[in-house]
Design a binder for these strands. Structure first.
Length: 159
DNA sequence: GCCAACGTTGGC
DNA sequence: GCCAACGTTGGC
């Protein structure tokens, strides 16, 4: 089975790498996605075992480590809870609208791979992360892109 | 703090 | 069905 690669974004002020690693079994529910394109990726394409780049948005703007999908898509429970920010009154357990996956923290990069560093890598010229106006919080990464990011993380490229 | 990008909502 | 207004995201 072909393994998939993904990038997920997180605002470190809300949920950063350190909090991720401190989670039970280094695993967190990746919930709160309320964008249909991102939802479709979660619901239809992400598979258990897929690999993930964990990216800090906002002030950090860097890929900080890797993760792995340990549970494929299931209905995001926060959509049913009026106390949650992500509550959606149009959703019901019988007809869920939003999905979550579980991801487990992998390795932390020795040095974060910054956006600026990524922009210097020719193989990443078309990477979704670097496109103007990209706001998707989860999207696929190609195998060459995955390899190139890891090369930068290992210090084998400038950055 | 500002602003561009973009998705969603609601009036028509 | 169109589109202006609005809210959110995220880079700078």
């Amino acid at each position: 089975m072909a393994r998939g690669y993904w990038l997920v974004k997180s605002d470190p002020d809300t949920f950063g790498w350190d909090e991720f690693v401190a989670s039970p079994d280094r695993t967190t529910m990746w919930d709160g996605v309320r964008n249909y394109q991102a939802r479709n990726f979660l619901r239809d394409e992400i598979r258990k075992g897929d690999q993930v780049l964990f990216y800090h948005s906002q002030q950090d703007r860097a890929v900080v480590g890797t993760a792995r999908v340990v549970r494929a898509a299931y209905p995001d429970p926060t959509q049913f809870d009026p106390a949650e920010k992500g509550f959606d009154e149009r959703s019901s357990p019988e007809n869920p609208r939003w999905y979550a996956v579980d991801i487990k923290a992998g390795r932390k990069f020795a040095r974060p791979v910054t956006l600026d560093a990524l922009r210097d890598v020719p193989e990443l010229a078309d990477m979704r992360l670097l496109r103007r106006g990209n706001r998707l919080s989860v999207f696929p990464v190609t195998a060459p892109e995955w390899d190139a990011v890891l090369q930068v993380a290992k210090g084998r490229r400038p950055g």
